[in-house]
């Protein structure tokens, strides 16, 4: 958009996805799929939301989860384009299946 719209109306829903807030991150959550019990608590509490849940056979193939983990659905995946690295998922995971590691640039 290069012209200011009347009344500052934004006509495209959800176009904030153009802002890649993943650059804010200092620490990075990494899911350990061997430990994950699919409780979805991380997905439930992610404030971005930057945790995607895959409930069907088709989209799960694109996740970084190892083949073995894909046998059990749903699969969660962290969207690093938007994850700000707040660490709520790491703190709330009941089985400590999420590591929180320093981001390397």
């Amino acid at each position: 958009m290069d012209v200011i719209t009347r009344g500052a109306v934004i006509t495209e829903p959800g176009n904030s996805v153009e802002n890649k807030t993943g650059t804010w991150r200092v620490f990075k959550p990494v899911i350990n799929y061997d430990k994950c019990i699919r409780c979805l608590i991380c997905w439930q509490f992610c404030p971005e939301p930057a945790i995607l849940r895959h409930d069907d056979e088709e989209t799960k193939q694109k996740t970084p989860a190892p083949k073995e983990a894909l046998k059990k659905l749903p699969v969660v995946e962290i969207d690093y384009d938007y994850c700000k690295g707040c660490g709520i998922c790491y703190n709330e995971c009941p089985v400590h299946a999420i590591d929180f590691v320093k981001e390397e640039k």
Binding site: G14, V17, K20, T21, F45, P47, P49, D79, K84, G85
Partner: peptide, 19 residues
């Protein structure tokens, strides 16, 4: 399972309001 609130907003990391 759907999101009506998109990522890419400027709320602080760890803010509870988006939840």
């Amino acid at each position: 399972k759907e999101e009506f609130f998109a990522p890419g907003h400027g709320m602080c990391a760890g803010c509870a309001a988006p939840i």
